[in-house]
Amino acid sequence: MGAGHDHGDGHSHGPTLSKDAPKDERRSKERAIAIAAILTGGFMGAEVVGGLISGSLALLADAGHMLTDFASLILAWLAFRLARRPADWKRTYGFDRFSVLAAFVNGLSLFAIAIWILIEAVQRLRDPSEVLGGLMLWVAVGGLVVNILAFWVLSRAEGDNLNVRAAALHVMGDLLGSVAAIIASLVIIWTGWTPIDPILSVVVVTLILRSAWAVVRESGHILLEGAPRGFDARAISSDLEASVLGVERAHHVHAWSITQERPMATLEIDLEAGADAHVVKRAVKARVQELSGVDHVTVEISDRDQAEDTPESRH
């Protein structure tokens, strides 16, 4: 910006999880993703074979979940690895945004899985096929154990990270799929009623779609440079004009997020006559941080007040 540009002290465009978050927090999330990927990928083959042999759509649907989950977990892991790279002159904010893109892709993939399962379920209901309940039960129990372990690992590391949350949702879908497969296999063993298999597959799909939509909506909001949660530009502008001494007008208020943990804001202010630009900037930054929780705030003095700006505030 111009001479009135002021980032303030302590801000960095590098790929940090948040201003004060330790690096080992990022590493722990990355490690959790890797463990979940190993667990999911390791059992996926067994579930595919079991689903094909037993003829169970619930198992094949769960295996389909696991296949996309494995790919999604690898993508999430790569996002963390890529985010380690430092910012450069081309990408001044670093590579953190890739994790949001990974969350968006993972969320969309859940919808693709849901459509496939719904189509398969309708076909199975129209043309029921034999299902080997015993084999289906043992494979489903094994899948449940694996999914519980993977979900436990991810839930411990989730926090507010969209990338980890999207991965956890994939695993939760698998977990619910395994539960549905167990219930379906027991019903088939006891009653021989095979339609329970596709019916429970559809139930699982409906349970995970709501959460999938939440991830897609939130990650899409970040990718579209939407304001961070709780940031109201109109309210902040009015508050600054009413509460900060020396601010005549606050305008051009913009806020966005690099990732869910890295919100940022910029704004322009008109100074009252005789106001000290440097003092007012500090007060504005502190007030915006107090109101919104955004700790990276850039304040610009309007052109008409540039002559009153001090050399200390120039960037």
Score class of each variant (00 low, 15 high):
residue 53 I to A: 00
residue 14 G to Y: 14
residue 133 G to K: 06
residue 148 I to V: 13
residue 117 I to G: 12
residue 229 R to I: 15
residue 134 G to S: 01
residue 309 D to F: 04
residue 32 A to W: 00
residue 308 E to P: 04
residue 188 I to W: 06
residue 53 I to L: 02
residue 6 D to L: 03
residue 28 S to W: 09
residue 135 L to M: 05
residue 209 L to M: 15
residue 314 R to D: 12
residue 181 A to F: 12
residue 271 L to T: 00
residue 297 V to Y: 01
residue 58 A to E: 05
residue 99 S to L: 03
residue 210 R to F: 00
residue 6 D to W: 07
residue 107 G to E: 03
residue 1 M to Q: 15
residue 190 W to Q: 06
residue 241 E to R: 10
residue 245 L to N: 12
residue 239 D to C: 10
residue 253 V to E: 06
residue 20 D to E: 03
residue 60 L to V: 03
residue 211 S to D: 07
residue 162 L to F: 04
residue 24 D to F: 15
residue 276 D to E: 11
residue 300 E to D: 02
residue 101 L to W: 15
residue 192 G to F: 04
residue 140 A to S: 09
residue 185 S to C: 05
residue 287 R to N: 09
residue 93 Y to A: 08
residue 289 Q to T: 03
residue 155 S to Q: 07
residue 82 L to R: 06
residue 222 I to G: 11
residue 274 G to K: 08
residue 51 G to E: 08
residue 66 M to H: 12
residue 180 A to W: 12
residue 203 V to I: 08
residue 32 A to F: 00
residue 153 V to F: 13
residue 143 G to T: 03
residue 100 V to H: 07
residue 235 A to C: 05
residue 314 R to M: 03
residue 131 V to N: 02
residue 266 T to M: 15
residue 99 S to M: 07
residue 60 L to M: 05
residue 241 E to D: 07
residue 145 V to G: 04
residue 288 V to C: 00
residue 34 A to V: 14
residue 201 S to N: 02
residue 15 P to E: 04
residue 45 G to W: 10
residue 222 I to R: 01
residue 70 F to Q: 07
residue 118 L to F: 09
residue 132 L to V: 13
residue 273 A to G: 14
residue 11 H to G: 12
residue 66 M to K: 07
residue 253 V to W: 09
residue 44 M to C: 01
residue 28 S to C: 08
residue 95 F to Y: 02
residue 310 T to Q: 02
residue 50 G to I: 11
residue 61 A to I: 02
residue 123 Q to R: 15
residue 34 A to W: 15
residue 288 V to T: 10
residue 306 Q to W: 15
residue 151 F to Q: 05
residue 169 L to M: 12
residue 284 V to M: 10
residue 34 A to Q: 04
residue 278 H to S: 11
residue 198 P to A: 08
residue 313 S to G: 04
residue 34 A to N: 09
residue 168 A to C: 00
residue 220 G to L: 10
residue 212 A to R: 00
residue 267 L to P: 10
residue 247 V to S: 05
residue 179 V to C: 12
residue 292 S to D: 03
residue 140 A to I: 01
residue 61 A to Y: 11
residue 311 P to I: 02
residue 172 M to Q: 13
residue 58 A to R: 08
residue 220 G to Q: 07
residue 315 H to N: 14
residue 240 L to K: 09
residue 77 W to V: 14
residue 190 W to F: 15
residue 239 D to T: 01
residue 85 R to H: 03
residue 185 S to T: 06
